[in-house]
């Protein structure tokens, strides 16, 4: 059985402050400060963008700032989700994902 519809599993610290962010209009809850790519994966959002030439589905791949696959719009600017800490009220826009 595929676990929880493919969402990554994350354990936040007992004292972590959970905050809400918006992903293409949808509310997602995550611990403040968690890398955004992990927060999205834990919410089951693996498909982050489509490749510009082939339109193929892409998601976070290296989780260490190298591959650029997780570059999405955060509060209007293109950011690598794996390098961007979650903040309350963050507006996230995926790229080319319906």
């Amino acid at each position: 059985m595929i676990e929880r519809d493919g969402a990554f599993h994350r354990r936040a610290a007992p004292g972590a402050r959970m905050v809400e962010l918006t992903v293409d209009g949808r509310a997602v809850t995550a611990p403040e400060g968690e890398p955004l790519a992990t927060a999205l994966a834990a919410a089951g959002i693996l498909l982050l963008r489509r490749s510009p030439r082939a339109g193929a589905p892409r998601g976070a791949f290296c989780f260490m700032g190298v591959c650029q696959e997780c570059a999405i719009f955060v509060d209007g600017a293109l950011r690598q989700a794996c390098m961007t800490p979650v903040a309350a009220g963050m507006q996230v826009e995926l790229r080319g994902v319906p």
Binding site: I2, E3, R4, G6, A7, F8, H9, R10, R11, A12, A13, E34, P35, T38, A41, A42, L46, L47, L48, P57, R58, G59, A60, F61, C62, F63, M64, C67, C82
Partner: peptide, 21 residues
Amino acid sequence: PGVIGLAAATVLLKSHAARPA
């Protein structure tokens, strides 16, 4: 999506308290 690097997994495990699905 859902294919990640081995080193990526170490980052998730060591640093993010997360594991892939």
